[in-house]
């Protein structure tokens, strides 16, 4: 038996909007730790890792570890039927082939339940060890979204370079080139507006902008985004999900042959 009650149901709605374009079908894993998902996009270039910790739910009951295969497009259709202020409860029976999403309006005068069919998904779980990154950039998520959108009108690939001067996002295409440099800026009124660049070693890596743009669908979840870069590793683009967890996107770099 599984029963997870999330008072801030809009978080789950936003989470789905953040991953449904990248991944079609995925297993949601439920354990005493929390509600989680790890999935790759169909071309195995990007990976998304979601964790919503059990403490973030008002009520969290998960009698035994459960993996529920869901079509994210269908799940998104159902969650779109929940109001932004609704409380969402996820319910499933052990060994059942459906999951129920219950939506309660804040005033309790409307209660809806939507039952969705589960599916069997052969999921390949990757072990992702903790890593020391050469450079970590924290910036407003809206700024990162703007940069990815702007650069993708010029080129297909972004080169992200971190030096002591700052972080540079560059692209090139048929019509020309573009370079956007951000410098560290911590003298801001609101901490979420800060640009913080932690450079242990300079790094420069190339990535497909198409995926970066897809990751920025998570912008409504968090005011800030953290970009972790190492020359030997995929970039990690992380958005916090309120106080309860995160969405991390991993993207393999492009290399010059």
């Amino acid at each position: 038996m599984l029963e997870l009650r999330l008072v801030q149901g809009s978080l789950l709605k936003k989470v789905l909007e953040s991953i449904k374009d990248l991944v079609n079908d995925a297993n949601f894993d439920c354990s005493s730790t929390g509600f989680s998902l790890q999935a790759m996009d169909s071309s195995h270039v990007a990976l998304v890792s979601l964790l919503l910790r059990s403490e973030g739910f008002e009520h969290y009951r998960c009698d035994r570890n459960l993996s529920m295969g869901m079509n994210l497009g269908n799940m998104s259709k159902m969650l779109k039927c929940a109001g932004n202020d609704d409380i969402i409860t996820i319910k499933a029976d052990d060994g059942g082939d459906t999951v129920t999403f219950m939506f309660e309006s804040p005033t309790q005068d409307k209660i809806a339940d939507f039952e969705m069919k589960l599916m069997d998904i052969d999921s390949e779980h990757l072990g992702i060890p903790d890593a020391e990154y050469h450079s970590i950039v924290r910036m407003p998520s809206s700024e990162f979204q703007r940069i990815c959108k702007d650069l993708s009108t010029i080129g297909d690939t972004v080169v992200i370079s971190v030096t002591k001067e700052g972080v540079k996002f560059s692209t090139a295409g048929d019509i020309g080139t573009a370079n956007i440099v951000l410098r560290q800026n911590t003298t801001v009124d609101k901490p979420e507006d800060a640009i913080v660049i932690e450079m242990n070693e300079p790094v420069s890596l190339s990535f497909a902008l198409r995926y970066m743009n897809s990751f920025t669908k998570a912008t409504p979840l968090s005011d800030t985004v953290t970009i972790s870069l190492s020359s030997e590793l995929p970039v990690v683009v992380e958005y916090k999900v309120a106080e309860m967890g995160y969405i991390r996107y991993y993207l393999a770099p492009k290399i010059e042959e």
């Binding site: 195995h44 270039v45 990757l126 690939t157 393999a252 290399i255 010059e256």
Partner: peptide
């Protein structure tokens, strides 16, 4: 010429 690497090149299946 640029080559797009895949995630499996970096992490192994657990």
């Amino acid at each position: 010429k640029e080559t797009q690497l895949r995630i499996e090149a970096f992490y192994s299946f657990s």
